[in-house]
Every structure is written in C-alpha cells, then in structure tokens.
C-alpha cells in the first residue's frame, strides 16, 4: 500500500506559509507608497538614487557571500529592504557614488561582519546613514524643495533649503516660514527621499501592522512620546510646544514604523518593545529640543538598538502559571 519510505520527524508536522522572503516582501510593499511620493515630489532622481542604493546592497550581499562560500541569500529580499531604507534616508541630491559606499557599508560592515541576517546589532540602513553623515556632512544635508527639476545623472548644484525641523529649531534657518500642516502631511516639503510624506508612510506602516509584520508597540509609543514631550517642553514654557509639527516632520514616521521596528536590532518582548519606543521618543525629543542637531530620530534608534539585548533580558514576560499554589 505504501511504496516509499515515510518521513518520520518530531511534531509539529505542518508549518505556516510565511517565510523570511514573504515577510521582507511585505516590507517592500509597505515602502512603495512612500517611494511613489518621493518620485512625485523629488522627481526621477529620487528613483535613481533608490535604485543605485538597492543595487549596491544586493551586490554587496552577493559578493560577501560568494567570497566567503556562504549560501547566497539575496532572494530573501532583506538586502532590498535595507537598500530602500538607506535611500529613504538620503537627500535626492547626493552624488551617485555615495549610495554605493553607503550600501556596501550597511551590508558588509554592519550586517555581515556581525553574522548576517538577524545578527546585526544596529539597523544597517541607519548605521550607514550615520556613517555617511559623519563623513560627508555637506552632501548629506543638501535639501531641496519639491519639484526642483533635479538633473538625473549630474550631481545637482543647488542651494539647500531649510527643513521644517531646522526652522522650528530657529538656528540657521531663522526667519523662514513654516510649511503648512497639509504640506507636511502630504510630503510637499524639503527632506530626505523617503521621510517627507507622512500620509504614504502611514499607509505603509498600517499595512505592516495589518499583516502582523510589526506590532503597534514601537511605532505608537515612539510617536506618542515625541508628541507629548515636545508639547510639554515648549520653547515658550511648559505645555506650549508645537507637538503637531514635531510629530509630522523629520524622519519620525519613517523611523517609528520602518527603522525602529527592525527585527534584528529591537527587543522581542512586548514590554521591551514599549520601552524601545518610549526610549527612542525621549532621546529624539531631547536631541530636537536641546541638542546640536535639528533631528534626532536616527541617533535615538541607534542608541536604543544597542540597549535592545539588555532590554530583552530584563523584560522577560511573566510565564503562564507564575502564581502561588493554593494552600
């Protein structure tokens, strides 16, 4: 009746259909609306920078694995996700060699040096962004207004416009007027390629929550903390802060939904994720309100990344049955 040998293995005998690739692909899908917005506001150059970054990441992963005789895993989409996220953190004006450097740094130094997929202790895209910002601060902060007609291949020679956060801070951009809340919400403002459109990022973020790729814990606590703190510690005294502008501008939406939720570098415990969100919110607010930079989302996430293993350790959930035996 049975002609072949039966498979004998330990239970469970069935598995869900979800795979690493399907999870990563969901993230790519979630990033697509923001990419479309980027192409709309910053033109084809935004798409080009993104394509170069993604390609660099994939090539870097392939090259590393080939040289080290490891199984090639570029079809799991994880390098693509890193690539898109890194591109989203670059201004559309960067010279095209920069995403290449960033992509290789993200994949090889931050991800593969520490053991590859799931082992990186920092978000690769953010670490690469920090590296680029420290190395080439001028090129990395050349913001342009939307619809600036950037040349496609030539590095654009433009005058930097101010981001809303710089205006809020009132330093170099003093005197410029704030964009309207509608512009902020739609993304019709200066900034990096993928951070400006709150609407599109929200759509993507909600998709990830709906698909159970991420939980609400990190993004909601992160954004709420920034909102509350920037309102309380306003420039003109307590409870006068411009929380709405703080929440809608800069990299907060991108960071909260897509960067702080990076699996490898964030806690896995429910309580730990809430601590991660609140912690990143506090650091972001402190940097924005009192620090030297107008924006602090990236650094706050990187700092919390380092604390993630420790957070996991101290937030082990109370196990089922951790109760007193009835006397």
């Amino acid at each position: 009746m049975i002609n072949n040998r039966l498979i004998v293995s330990s239970s469970p005998h069935v598995r869900s259909e979800e795979t690493v690739s399907s999870v990563m692909l969901d993230v790519v899908i979630a990033l697509t609306p923001a990419l479309i917005a980027a192409a709309y506001f910053f033109g084809f150059r935004a798409l080009l920078v993104t394509a170069v970054t993604v390609l660099s990441c994939v090539v870097a992963e392939y090259a590393w694995q080939k040289v080290n005789h490891q199984p090639i895993t570029i079809n799991d989409w994880s390098a693509v996700v890193t690539g898109i996220l890194l591109a989203f953190n670059l201004p559309a004006t960067v010279p095209l060699w920069m995403p290449v450097v960033g992509g290789f740094f993200a994949i090889i130094v931050v991800k593969q040096f520490f053991g590859g997929l799931g082992q990186n202790f920092m978000n690769p895209a953010l670490a690469a962004r920090a590296f680029l910002l420290a190395s080439w601060p001028v090129e990395m902060t050349k913001w342009v207004d939307p619809f600036s007609n950037l040349p496609l291949l030539k590095t654009p020679d433009v005058i930097s416009s101010a981001t809303p956060l710089a205006i809020l801070k009132g330093t170099e951009a003093a005197g410029q007027t704030m964009p309207s809340i509608t512009s902020l919400f739609l993304g019709n403002i200066g900034g990096t390629i993928g951070e400006t459109s709150v609407l599109m990022l929200l759509i993507g973020g909600l998709w990830l929550i709906y698909r159970k790729v991420i939980s609400w814990r990190i993004p909601v606590t992160f954004i709420a903390t920034v909102g509350v703190l920037t309102f309380i510690f306003g420039k003109d005294g307590f409870f006068t802060g411009n929380a709405i502008y703080h929440v809608l501008s800069g990299g907060l939406m991108l960071g909260a939904f897509f960067m702080a939720t990076d699996y490898a570098s964030s806690p896995v415990t429910p309580k730990g994720q809430i601590i991660m969100g609140i912690g990143a919110g506090i650091i972001t607010s402190v940097i924005r309100l009192y620090g030297g930079y107008p924006e602090g989302v990236s650094y706050s996430i990187l700092l919390m990344n380092i604390a993630a293993p420790l957070i996991d350790r101290y937030t082990t959930p109370v196990k089922f049955g951790e109760v007193k035996v009835r006397a």
């Binding site: 999870v23 997929l117 939980s215 699996y263 490898a264 415990t269 429910p270 196990k319 089922f320």
Partner: peptide, 19 residues
Amino acid sequence: ESPCIRCGKCVDACPMNLL
C-alpha cells in the same frame, strides 16, 4: 531552516508566555 530574524512571532504565539 534559515537564520532567526528575531521577528518575535514565536513570542506572540507562545500560550505559556515563554520566549
């Protein structure tokens, strides 16, 4: 098997609240 990506789905699924 591929490497753990630390997605935490096992943590959410565990009915005994383990890790």
